[in-house]
């Protein structure tokens, strides 16, 4: 009985790639964690599927209207102690090439799916008191970059969500925070670097005084925020960027 009570249910979106996948791997090292990963492509995470404390849910979060049904279906009697929203997309589009559909698309995955997940997780039936919710923003949530109107706006929107919801859920001692990484070595970054010439790639790397980050650098901070050790931290945006944003 005691053992059951010490287990922690943690939900991670974007679990099949980059920071989300790194976080899942970190969390699974503690057998007391039961990790629920949401992602689109099961194959990308096939090495983890046989872990006893890992449950994978194949789901496309752009289908926002069915998230509630997915919760009913997959999380009956599951109360979460932690939630990390890593799902997201990045794009470089000059504003004159934007369309309302493209703006909607990036907001749907980066922001609206997060709000819908948080709406459900804020209910007592899906979350424990003292739970910790973390949204992955970006240093671009506060800074700007040419061609990143949609990305910067969506990541900034998450910071608003965090501050407001932290106050709403403080009564239940549920903490809500954002983590804003600089450039981290992930598949998304490789994709971005491919679009740039070598000179620009070097320039971006040089903008990070401590070099670009590793997935584990961010996963460690996420694990800390999920833990009891961060019990008095809420409504914050924690930047982790090797010094990028203080220049």
């Amino acid at each position: 009985m005691l053992e059951v009570e010490s287990k922690k249910n943690i939900l991670v979106t974007g679990a099949t790639s980059g920071i989300g996948k790194g976080l899942v791997i970190s969390l699974l090292q503690d057998p007391e964690n039961i990790v629920y990963g949401i992602g689109r492509d099961e194959e990308k995470i096939s090495g983890l599927l046989d872990k006893q404390n890992f449950k994978f849910i194949a789901y496309d979060l752009t289908d926002i209207n069915s998230i509630e049904n997915m919760f009913r279906d997959k999380f009956e009697n599951v109360k979460f102690d932690g939630f990390v929203h890593c799902a997201g997309m990045e794009e470089t589009i000059p504003i004159t090439l934007y369309s309302p559909e493209k703006v909607l698309q990036i907001f749907q995955i980066n922001v609206f799916s997060a709000i819908e997940l948080l709406r459900l997780l804020s209910k007592k039936k899906y979350s424990e008191n003292n739970a910790s919710f973390v949204l992955l923003s970006s240093v671009m949530g506060e800074l700007g970059q040419a061609g990143k109107v949609g990305y910067c706006a969506s990541k900034a929107a998450l910071l608003g969500v965090v501050k407001s919801l932290a106050l709403e859920l403080a009564k239940r001692e549920i903490r809500v925070n954002a983590v804003s990484p600089g450039i981290v070595n992930t598949p998304l970054t490789s994709q971005l670097f491919q679009q740039l010439d070598a000179k620009n790639v070097d320039r971006i790397k040089d903008m990070h005084p401590m070099g670009i980050g590793k997935v584990d650098d961010v996963a460690d901070l996420l694990c800390f925020l999920l833990s009891e050790k961060a019990r008095w931290i809420t409504g914050q945006n924690l930047k982790i960027d090797g010094g990028y944003s203080v220049q």
Binding site: T92, I93, P94, L97, G147, D197, A198
Partner: peptide, 26 residues
């Protein structure tokens, strides 16, 4: 300039589904 290059990449991607890399632009 770099913004024109960005526009070119975006337009070619939207219209033809072809991704021009930074090296291509060079």
């Amino acid at each position: 300039d770099s913004m024109t290059a960005m526009l070119l990449i975006g337009y070619v991607s939207d219209e033809f589904g072809v991704t021009l890399t930074g090296d291509n632009i060079g």
